[in-house]
Amino acid sequence: MSYKSVTIKAGKGGFGGPLTLVPTDTRNKVVSVTGGGIHPVAAKIAEMTGCPAVDGFSTGVPDNEILVAIVDCGGTARCGVYPKKRIFTVNVLPVGQTGPLARFITEDIYVSAVDASCISFADESAVSKAGTPTNPTSAPKTKAQAKAEIAKMNEGKPKNLATRIGIAIGGVVNKFYAAGRETIDITIKTILPFMAFVSMILGIISASGLGDVIANTISPIASTLPGMLIVSFICAIPFISPVLGPGAVIAQVVGTLLGVQIGLGNIPPQYALPALFAIDAQVGCDFIPVGMSLGEAEPETIELGVPAILYSRVITGPIAVLIAYVFSIGLYS
C-alpha cells in the first residue's frame, strides 16, 4: 500500500508548523489522543495519507510507529508530552508554547488550531526536505560525549581547594537561579493567563446577577454529603470523565466558583475538604494513555489499563469524598 504525504499548517490563532508528514512502513499510525473516539482532524489526516487512524485511549501504539499525534490540550500537559518525545503533534486547540513542557514545543514538531482546511497534500520539494523527526536520543548522547571529552581534558589537572569551593558555590547559585527562572516561566505562561480568564468570568458572573443563580443551585448541592457523592459519581462516569479532564480547566473553574460561595458563607467552610475530592474524581482521566506511556508501559497494558482506571474511579471517586468528609470533622469549628 502506498502512502501519501500531507502538509499541515497552523489554523487561525495557531502556532507552529507547517509540518510535512511522510508516512513510512513502520511509522504510519495517526493517533487520536482526544477522548471520545477519533477526532475529525485525525480522520481527515488518516484518509488523505492512507494511514490507519487509531484511538489512543482504546489502543496503545509504540512511539516509533506514531506518524502524528492529534491532541486537544488546553495548554497544561498533553501538548508538550509528544513534542518532548519528538513525535509530530497536532493540537486542535489554539495553544502555543505553554505548560510545564513549553520548551519542547517548537515550530518544527508542533502545530496548533488545526482544522480540516489546514491539511493539504504535500508537494515534492517539501517531502524531500522533510523526513522523520530527529531521533530523541541523539541530543543527550552528544551532550554526554561532550562531557566525557571535557572530563578527559581535565584529567591529571589536580584542582586546588579554592577552585573547588568556587565551583561548588557557583553550582549551587546556578541551581537557585534556574529554580527562579522556572518558577517565573510557569507563572507567566500558565498561572497568570488562568487568573486572567477566570477573573473575567467571575467578574461577569457577579456583575450580571448570574452569581445569585449559581448560589441558589450549586450551594445546596455542595453543602450536603449526598450532594457531593452525586457530583463525584457523575464526574467519574467512564464516558464523562475523559471529557471533563483536559487541563483540569473544569475542576479549576468549579473550584473557584465554590470558593466564592464559601467566602460568601453559603457553603460551610469545613465542606471545602470533601468538595475538593468531589469535583476532582475525573483527575487525569483524559491523560491515561499518555501518562502510562511516560511510565514505559507496553501497548497491551495501556489498552486494558484505560478501562481499568476508568471503572476504578466510579468506585474510588465517592469513597474519596467519604474519607474527606470524615477528615473534615473538626475542621474550622
Binding site: I186, Q252, L273
Partner: peptide, 29 residues
Amino acid sequence: NGGELFVYMGIAAGITQLGLSLGDLAVRY
C-alpha cells in the same frame, strides 16, 4: 502542579475570605 493550582486555590480563596487559616485545610488535603 503550577498549571492547575486553582482546584485547590479556588476553594482556598473562600476560606481566606472568611479570615480562617489555610494550614489546617492544606495538611488534611
